[in-house]
C-alpha cells in the first residue's frame, strides 16, 4: 500500500503545474512547469517501489529532455508569444470540455474496476531491472538501438550544416567590416561616468556628450535604459542638478 499523504503531495505536484500546458502563455513557463511534473512523477515512481526508474526519470526527463526543450525555446526566441485568438469561435471551450470529458471517462472507468494489489512488492533496484532487461526484453533493447541511431542521424540531417564556404581569416573579417562602414574597433563601453558606471547608462565622449550606441541594444528594446537626453540636458543647463530628477 502507498502512503496517502505522499499521494496527495505528488498529485498536487503534477496536476497543478501540468495545467500550465493549457493556460500559460509563454512557452518557457510551460517548460519549467513540465520540469516540475517530471520531478513529481519521479517521486511517484519511488513511492511505487521503482527507485531506479525514479532516478532515471530525473536524469533523462528533467536533466536531458526538458533541458533540450529549453535550449530549443532559447534558439527560436523566448519571447515568441502565442496568440490565443481562436480560428473557430468557442473552439477553446469545446476542446477543454472534450478533454475534461475524456479525463472523467477514464477516471470513471478506473473507478469501476476491482483489481487486487499484490502483497509482494516488485524489486525495482538496478540489478533486478538489468536482469529483466537482458532476459525476455533483450530484443527490444537491441531494436531500441536503431531508434537512437535514427534520432541521431535524423537530427543531423535536419540541422547540421557542413562548411560550405572557406573559413574567413581574421584579416578578412576585419576588411569586410571596414568595407561596409561599420565600426573598425569595438563599440565604446557604457556607463564609464563617474556617478553612473552602470550598463544602462550611456558612455560620455571626450566632449562630455552621451554616446547613445554604447548601451546594449537589448536593454534599449526592453526600455531598460537611462535616457541619454536627460544627461545632455543636465550638461547644457548646469543649474539643474542630477539629484533633482
Amino acid at each position: 500500500m502507498v502512503n496517502t499523504v505522499m499521494f496527495w503531495i505528488i498529485a498536487a505536484l503534477t496536476v497543478i503545474p501540468a495545467l500550465s500546458l493549457l493556460f500559460a502563455r509563454k512557452a518557457v513557463h510551460v517548460a519549467m512547469s513540465v520540469v516540475l511534473v517530471m520531478v513529481g512523477l519521479a517521486a511517484a515512481y519511488v513511492t511505487l517501489s521503482a527507485p531506479f526508474l525514479g532516478m532515471v526519470q530525473i536524469v533523462v526527463y528533467t536533466g536531458a529532455v526538458m533541458m533540450l526543450f529549453l535550449f530549443v525555446l532559447m534558439l527560436v526566441g523566448v519571447d515568441q508569444r502565442e496568440d490565443l485568438k481562436e480560428t473557430i469561435k468557442g473552439q477553446r471551450w469545446i476542446g477543454l470540455l472534450a478533454a475534461a470529458g475524456l479525463g472523467a471517462f477514464l477516471v470513471s472507468i478506473i473507478g469501476r474496476v476491482t483489481l487486487p494489489t499484490a502483497d509482494t512488492m516488485p524489486s525495482g533496484d538496478p540489478e533486478a531491472v538489468a536482469i529483466a532487461l537482458f532476459d525476455r526484453y533483450v530484443l527490444v533493447i537491441e531494436v531500441l538501438g536503431f531508434v537512437l541511431i535514427t534520432a541521431a542521424v535524423g537530427a543531423l540531417v535536419l540541422t547540421h550544416t557542413p562548411r560550405l564556404r572557406p573559413r574567413k581569416t581574421q584579416l578578412e573579417v576585419q576588411r569586410d567590416r571596414v568595407r561596409v562602414g561599420a565600426d573598425p574597433v569595438n563599440k565604446p563601453m557604457p556607463g564609464v561616468y563617474a556617478r553612473h558606471n552602470a550598463l544602462d547608462v550611456p558612455a560620455l565622449d571626450p566632449e562630455g556628450k552621451p554616446i547613445e550606441h554604447s548601451v546594449s541594444r537589448v536593454l534599449e528594446i526592453r526600455h531598460q535604459t537611462q535616457e541619454g537626453a536627460e544627461f545632455r540636458a543636465a550638461l547644457e543647463d548646469p543649474s539643474r542638478k542630477e539629484g533633482d530628477r
Binding site: L139, V140, V143, T150, V153, G154, V157, L158
Partner: peptide, 20 residues
C-alpha cells in the same frame, strides 16, 4: 510494448524523410 517500439522504429525515419 514491442509493438510500440516497432511503431517508433519505422515512424521516426519517415518523419525525417517527409521534411526533405
Amino acid at each position: 510494448i514491442f509493438l510500440f517500439v516497432a511503431l517508433e522504429v519505422f515512424s521516426l525515419p519517415l518523419y525525417v524523410l517527409v521534411a526533405l
